[in-house]
Measured scan of single mutants.
Amino acid sequence: MEVRTIKVFTTVDNINLHTQVVDMSMTYGQQFGPTYLDGADVTKIKPHNSHEGKTFYVLPNDDTLRVEAFEYYHTTDPSFLGRYMSALNHTKKWKYPQVNGLTSIKWADNNCYLATALLTLQQIELKFNPPALQDAYYRARAGEAANFCALILAYCNKTVGELGDVRETMSYLFQHANLDSCKRVLNVVCKTCGQQQTTLKGVEAVMYMGTLSYEQFKKGVQIPCTCGKQATKYLVQQESPFVMMSAPPAQYELKHGTFTCASEYTGNYQCGHYKHITSKETLYCIDGALLTKSSEYKGPITDVFYKENSYTTTIK
């Protein structure tokens, strides 16, 4: 009895394709271990004539594949690729409408935090270190965002349907971005203890939790000093293409032309909904596939993004 075979390709990165001759009487799992086709788990399936010449994702289970996976995804987590594939199996079914010149995501599976993050990423200057993220990001900007969303979920250790947080998501993504040249110098002034300067680099240099107003941050924000008295913390120097200011959701007025974009969060910790506000020729609110415009805006804002380049204080 002759062994019926077909020729397929296996890959971990969709760049390096490895030619395989597979036995049609055995499952993919018996031949390769966990195997995925377009995100779908085909591990328990036997090869079919229609699979001839198709590319299958496999887990990096030998040295060659491990090197290829690390170079593309910059992670050695053995569960990463499987999590990416199972997320992709959902995100490829989502709709990605162009809204006001940006790629958004039609609401499904509690994905409003991903839509808000995706919209924000198209408006701030950011370059990702893992080629996987950078490639998928370019495709997302062009309207094909399924891979990018699935990668975000995998890097953030999230599953489809789980509630997510924009600030946490951005923080994970910033860790995989090139923020080497970003720098922030802060000064804390206390009447009792004097003053202390701190220099922050990388992710810490672009994120701040405690106030939404970048102007206020430049002037000074009140913080408790270690001595128990009130101290003032203010920005001395900022070198970065953008800054992200966050605070627990509270009524906040966004003035046209003073910011790049913002995240609105309605609801409580267990259950809520994100919308995205962007400042173009007027203010726009993007909620999944829905767009509304207004000249002014007041609502429960939790993150505001500002364009920056270089700032030095005039406070002496």
Rank of each mutant, 00 (worst) to 15 (best):
V3M: 14
V3Y: 13
V8W: 02
T10Y: 14
V12M: 11
D13T: 08
I15V: 12
N16D: 07
N16P: 04
Q20K: 14
Q20M: 10
V21R: 12
V22Y: 02
M24Y: 10
M26L: 09
G29H: 09
Q30D: 12
Q31E: 09
Q31L: 14
G39K: 06
D41F: 06
T43V: 08
K44P: 11
P47Q: 03
N49T: 12
N49I: 14
E52I: 12
E52C: 11
G53M: 13
T55S: 12
Y57M: 14
Y57D: 05
Y57L: 10
D62T: 12
D62M: 07
D62W: 07
D63P: 08
L65G: 10
E68G: 07
A69E: 08
Y72N: 08
Y73A: 04
D77Q: 07
D77R: 05
L81C: 10
M85C: 08
A87Q: 08
K93C: 07
Q98C: 09
V99M: 15
V99T: 09
G101D: 07
G101A: 05
L102E: 05
W107P: 04
C112K: 05
Y113R: 05
Y113F: 11
L114D: 04
L114M: 09
A115W: 01
T116P: 05
T116G: 06
L119H: 00
F128W: 12
A132F: 04
A142G: 12
A145E: 04
I152L: 09
N157W: 05
V166F: 12
E168G: 09
T169G: 00
M170W: 03
Y172H: 11
L173H: 02
L173C: 07
D180G: 09
C190T: 00
C190Q: 03
C193K: 01
G194P: 07
Q196E: 10
T199P: 02
V203G: 06
M207Y: 09
T211A: 08
L212H: 06
Y214T: 02
K218P: 01
C225K: 01
C225D: 01
T226Y: 13
C227Y: 00
C227T: 02
G228Y: 01
G228K: 03
Q230P: 12
Q230E: 10
T232H: 09
L235K: 00
E239F: 09
P241L: 05
M245I: 04
A247K: 05
Y252N: 03
E253P: 07
L254H: 00
K255N: 07
H256V: 15
A262M: 00
E264N: 03
T266Y: 08
Y269L: 15
H273I: 01
K275Y: 00
K275H: 00
I277H: 02
I277P: 01
T278W: 04
S279G: 09
S279P: 05
S279C: 09
K280S: 14
L283G: 01
G288E: 00
S295M: 11
K298G: 08
D303A: 01
